[in-house]
Design a protein around this nucleic acid. Structure first.
Lengths: 119, 119
DNA sequence: TCAGGTATGGAAAATTTTTTCGGTATACTG
DNA sequence: CAGTATACCGAAAAAATTTTCCATACCTGA
């Protein structure tokens, strides 16, 4: 189902292990959206991250469920309804997400000047 | 010189800004190698990260120099010699690298069971 | 002299990720 | 009834990253 890597991630490097769980385009943002513990529906997550396509959110949420960072509840209703929530394991990543968030805020001006519009 | 992205990174999201600086395959590991402040030659870095090709280290070091995370000293000698060192800006990322390193160590067993050899 | 190490980078191939488009099925609203 | 929304997923295209291979130019040691 998921894309099968031909070159496997080196799990023996703790740094690369952690990175591999959050490095794809929207995973860190998804964790940030779910951080407060409230479950969110996919369409809600998409509203909060409008630049992500629903497809990529779907794919990455699925991987995060596989990795145990996020849990999923499916309601047997029509039209379909489901909810995603952060797990206890996922919550242990929040301090890292926080630190990255703060770093980005603190150093925004440097990179705005360097790579921002008009440069 | 560097690959020019067709879909630009959204610098307005602090999380994605931080991620964009460290998410590629070896950047976090390179920062970890340089963390103590001692300069390292490219061949030395490669010895510490033997699974990375010299080419990709070269490319990523160059980007990190552009981003101001790493500094470079070229010695006008033959055979050529150069050294890379972490900058003050780069050092501000070390707490994040550390947190990811510790997280990976703390949760290694979960993912070893899940994705390790023989599974 | 020849092999091996030094640092770097162009170019193309291979790999991986993300986007785009389409389709499933059902219910509600105007 | 047509349009919209819900969640999800297959497939192919596009984009982005990494690998592989080759080349430069010079030194040291066998």
């Amino acid at each position: 189902m998921a894309y099968e890597k031909k070159i496997p991630v080196d799990l023996d490097c703790p740094l690369r292990l952690t990175m591999s769980l959050i490095e794809s385009k929207w995973k860190s943002c998804i964790l940030d959206e779910l951080r407060n513990g409230d479950p969110m529906r996919p369409s809600e997550i998409h509203k909060c991250l409008p630049e992500a396509t629903p497809r990529v959110l779907d794919i990455q949420l699925k991987e995060m469920v596989e990795d145990g960072l996020v849990g999923k509840t499916i309601f047997p209703e029509l039209p379909p309804r489901s909810e995603y929530h952060i797990t206890d394991l996922g919550k242990t990543l929040i301090p890292i997400i926080d630190a990255m968030l703060r770093w980005g805020e603190d150093h925004y001006d440097i990179f705005e000047k360097k790579y921002g519009a008009g440069n």
